[in-house]
Structures are given as structure tokens and as C-alpha cells.
């Protein structure tokens, strides 16, 4: 049984048919063609699938897709503004905050949720904000540095 769901994806109105029980991650990737959120576990444990729903981070693998009806979903696919990278993206690039890059889209979303709420976070606040996101290539130090750097850049701009 498929049912229709309409929501806002990175600012655009999106309508998609979802299978009963489908999670948001699968619907974004297969239904909407937004491949930026990644599957790492399907258990909420890794954060690779993190997206923002109404501005707050959620692990999309555990979100029943139909519950986002009428809400706004943001993914890394919509992070940059045209050709210009988001300050977080720029900081991740310049700070070598990704190796294999598989955790990166989720990290960026968790970081964006933080900076949107708290433009000048402390280091422990950054660590807390990405505590649900695993990076197996062990890039936590550069990732935390990059998020702090993005906050500084934004503050300066």
C-alpha cells in the first residue's frame, strides 16, 4: 500500500508516494532522488542519515515517512546556496574535516542545527551537538574545529 505525502524538501514543495512503513531516509533517497543522507545502520546509532525536520536534527532512518507531511525537511543536498558553499561546507573543506566523506552529510546537518540556534557555541556544545554522529575515519578533532571555524566565519561576516 502506497500513500501520498507532501512536504517541503530544501524549500521546494515535494510530493511522493511512500510504502507503508517506509522510513524517511529511503523516501528521500529513492523517492525524491536526494542521495545526500546516507545509510549507516538503520538503528539511529550512527547519524549518517541526519536531516533537519522543522529545523531540528532527526535521524531520518527512524522517521516514519508519513509523519513529515506538511513539514519542512532540510538535507545536505540543499545546504549550499547556488554555487557558493555554506560556511560549514567551506570550513569542512579547508579544515580537512572529512576522509571518506560518508559521515559528512549527517555531520553537516547536526552542525547546522546547532549554529542556527547557537551562532557561537563552545567546544563542549559542538561535541554535544555531534554526539549522535559517528565518524569511523576518526575525524572528530578536525570536525569540531571546522564547526567552530564556521561559527567564527559566520560571526565575522
Amino acid at each position: 500500500m502506497k500513500s501520498p505525502v507532501t512536504f517541503w524538501l530544501n524549500g521546494s514543495e515535494t510530493a511522493v508516494f511512500v510504502d507503508a512503513g517506509a522510513n524517511l531516509l529511503d523516501v528521500l533517497r529513492r523517492g525524491c532522488g536526494d542521495l545526500s543522507p546516507k545509510y549507516g545502520c538503520g538503528q539511529g546509532g550512527c547519524g549518517a542519515c541526519t536531516v533537519l525536520i522543522d529545523g531540528e536534527p532527526h535521524v531520518s532512518c527512524l522517521v516514519l515517512a508519513e509523519t513529515v507531511a506538511g513539514r519542512s525537511v532540510e538535507t545536505t543536498g540543499g545546504l549550499s546556496n547556488g554555487p557558493d558553499p555554506h560556511p560549514l561546507q567551506r570550513a569542512f573543506m579547508e579544515g580537512f574535516a572529512a576522509q571518506c566523506g560518508y559521515c559528512t552529510p549527517g555531520m553537516l546537518m547536526a552542525a547546522k542545527a546547532l549554529l542556527d540556534r547557537n551562532p557561537s557555541p563552545s567546544r563542549p556544545e559542538v561535541e554535544e551537538a555531534i554526539s549522535g554522529n559517528l565518524c569511523r575515519c576518526t575525524g572528530y578533532e578536525p570536525i569540531v574545529d571546522a564547526i567552530l571555524e564556521a561559527a567564527r566565519q559566520r560571526g565575522a561576516a
Binding site: 538503520g42 539511529g44 527512524l62 522517521v63 516514519l64 509523519t67
Partner: peptide, 24 residues
């Protein structure tokens, strides 16, 4: 019964067949 789904959706993703309906 679906709350936030953090446990139920995990079971769904892993094909748990002990339940066939999600009520929300």
C-alpha cells in the same frame, strides 16, 4: 502504537514480523 519511532522503526527496518500494523 507509534511514539517517536526510535525503537519501532528500528524493528521495522530490520523486518520484525511480530507486528504487522503501526498505529499512530
Amino acid at each position: 502504537f507509534l511514539g517517536g519511532g526510535t525503537l519501532i522503526m528500528n524493528r521495522v527496518n530490520y523486518g520484525d514480523r511480530r507486528f504487522t500494523r503501526i498505529v499512530r
